[in-house]
Computed example of a mutant assay.
Amino acid sequence: MTDHIENLAADVQAFTSNVFLVTGDRTALVDTGANFDVVSRIETRVDDLDTVVLTHTHGDHVGNVDAVRAAFDVDVQGHESAQPVVDTELGEAVRLGDHDYRVVHTPGHKDDHVCLYAPELSVCFAGDLVFANGAFGRTDLEEGDRETLIESIDRLRGTVDPGLSVLHAGHGPSVTSDAYATIERAAAAARQR
């Protein structure tokens, strides 16, 4: 089986993050988004969720956590179990769909930020660390730090394979060509003052 990954927030006009539904062995939601009815969108595609994994706990990524938790009685995983929206702390890897994703701690945008990388599938969920066209996450919010963000982008660049097929960003389009080069561009752009 091959994972199917769909952005449930692709056409949403509200302030939200992308919300990725990963189907396969272990049906998962990467981030829950905010300010739209994600539950009905999930229900039209799958009968149940096995887990929710958060890239980080900014409001636009976790605003729908309570609704998703109530509808599916699902465990919410994140980097820090001290966060009220997190039920279980992520370990070194997490199963999404039919593949294991490495959990890469990537602070700088927010202290609890992680990226998720499946080497076998050549897919990375980058949250708000890097975006299409080499853009990078904001560092002017609480817990934001430019130097830490640069270190995290470098860590991600050193973790993923140069042949990375797809980079799913927390906002905007997914990168389906030159995904590794997008990370390199973000690393260079973040160093510019």
Rank of each mutant, 00 (worst) to 15 (best):
S165V: 00
L156A: 09
T139I: 06
Y180W: 13
S40N: 13
A169Y: 02
E92T: 10
T44E: 14
R102L: 11
E151K: 15
S40Y: 08
H79I: 03
N7C: 01
L141Q: 13
E43D: 12
G24M: 06
T55S: 11
A188W: 00
D100A: 10
V38A: 12
A28Q: 04
A93V: 09
R69D: 03
R155Q: 05
I42S: 12
D87R: 11
A82I: 06
V85N: 00
T16I: 03
T176D: 06
E142H: 03
I150E: 08
S40M: 11
A70E: 13
V160W: 08
G63N: 01
E89D: 03
D73F: 04
G78Q: 07
H113G: 11
H168S: 04
R157G: 10
D112N: 10
H56V: 01
R185T: 14
V85Y: 01
D47A: 09
E184L: 05
S165G: 11
V62D: 09
C115R: 07
A190C: 04
D140V: 09
N35F: 06
A67C: 01
D66Y: 09
I150T: 08
V46R: 14
L21V: 08
R45A: 13
P84V: 11
G163E: 09
D37A: 09
L54K: 10
D66R: 13
D75N: 07
I5G: 00
L149F: 00
G63D: 03
N64A: 07
H4D: 10
P107D: 14
S81T: 07
L167S: 02
C115T: 13
G158A: 14
G170T: 08
A190N: 02
R193E: 12
E92F: 05
N64W: 03
A93P: 00
A28Y: 08
R41L: 14
A189Q: 06
E43A: 15
V12A: 10
G144E: 07
V85I: 10
H56M: 09
D73P: 14
D50E: 05
L21G: 05
R138G: 13
T2C: 02
D3V: 04
G137Y: 07
T27V: 15
D60C: 10
S122H: 06
A9N: 04
F20H: 15
